[in-house]
Simulated scan of single mutants.
Amino acid sequence: MWACQSLVSQIKQRQIITDGIPTAAFQVSRAKKGTSLAKEVRAAVSEYELPLLDGTIHDRTIFAKALSDGFTSLDTDPNGVASLEIRHMAKQIIEGFT
């Protein structure tokens, strides 16, 4: 999470001079099922004072497989769990998360 510090600082500086633009949020991704990583990340990002999107993108082999084939999980398995996670994230971004 320390790697985010510089980026978050730059985003916040830009938001000050551009009336809140760009909007930014965190998304927990590459989480391993059965671990507490997602919970730990959620606690860590709270100090950055940027929103955290609801839901988690889990580390799934379909992402690597789809990428190596030149596709996305939405192309490869549109009704699969990975695609549902991606759609959930996209919906929050499209509808606005602030």
Results as ranks from 00 to 15, higher is better:
Gln92Trp: 14
Ala44Gln: 05
Asp54Glu: 12
Gly55Arg: 08
Val45Lys: 00
Ala3Thr: 00
Lys39Tyr: 01
Met89Trp: 04
Ala64Glu: 10
Arg42Ile: 03
Gly70Pro: 02
Thr72Ala: 13
Thr72Gln: 06
Gly80Met: 13
Ala44Thr: 03
Lys32Ala: 03
Ser46Leu: 00
Thr56Ala: 01
Thr18Pro: 00
Ser9Leu: 12
Ala66Cys: 07
Glu40Trp: 02
Thr61Phe: 08
Ala3Ile: 06
His58Gln: 01
Leu37Tyr: 11
Ala82Ile: 08
Thr35Asp: 10
Gly55Ala: 06
Pro78Asp: 08
Ile17Met: 02
Glu85Gln: 09
Lys32Glu: 05
Gln27Asp: 09
Asp54Gln: 06
Ser46Asn: 12
Glu47Lys: 07
Asp69Asn: 12
Leu67Val: 10
Val81His: 11
Phe71Val: 13
Arg42Thr: 04
Asp75Val: 05
Ser6Asn: 05
Met1Tyr: 02
Gly80His: 11
Asp75Ala: 15
Thr98Phe: 04
Glu85Phe: 03
Ala64Pro: 15
Gly34Ile: 04
Thr76Asp: 13
Gln13Ser: 14
Ser29Met: 00
Asn79Phe: 09
Val45His: 03
Lys33Met: 09
Asn79Met: 11
Asp59His: 01
Gln5Val: 01
Gly20Asp: 10
Leu37Ala: 15
Ser73Gln: 12
Thr61Gly: 07
Gly96Glu: 03
Pro22Asn: 05
Ala38Thr: 06
Ala3Phe: 11
Gly70Phe: 03
Asp75Asn: 15
Ala38Lys: 09
Asp75Trp: 15
Thr35Glu: 08
Gly55Asp: 01
Glu95Lys: 15
Glu40Asn: 14
Leu84Glu: 06
Lys65Cys: 07
Lys12Ala: 02
Leu53Gly: 11
Ile11Ser: 08
Ile86Lys: 09
Trp2Glu: 02
Phe71Arg: 14
Thr56Met: 00
Cys4Gln: 12
Phe26Pro: 10
His88Gly: 06
His58Met: 10
Lys65Glu: 12
Cys4Lys: 03
Gly55Trp: 10
Ile86Leu: 12
Arg30Val: 14
Leu7Cys: 11
Gly70Lys: 03
Gly70Cys: 03
Gln10Arg: 13
Leu84Trp: 01
Leu53Gln: 09
Thr61Tyr: 04
Phe63Tyr: 13
Ile94Glu: 04
Ala38Leu: 05
Cys4Asn: 03
Ser83Trp: 00
Val81Gly: 01
Gln15His: 12
Ser73Ile: 14
Ile94Tyr: 02
Gln10Gly: 06
Ser36Thr: 15
His88Tyr: 02
Arg14Thr: 11
Ala24Ile: 02
Ile21Trp: 14
Ser68Thr: 07
Leu84Asp: 08
Ser9Val: 12
Thr76Met: 15
Val28Trp: 01
Thr35Ala: 13
Ser36Arg: 15
Pro22Met: 13
Gly80Phe: 00
Thr72Val: 09
Asp19Cys: 05
His88Cys: 03
Lys32Asp: 15
Ala90Ser: 13
Val28Thr: 03
Glu95Thr: 04
Gly20Val: 08
Leu50Trp: 04
Ile86Val: 14
Ala90Met: 06
Leu67Ile: 06
Asp77Met: 11
Ile21Gly: 01
Val28Gly: 01
Ser68Asp: 11
Val81Asp: 14
Ile21Arg: 10
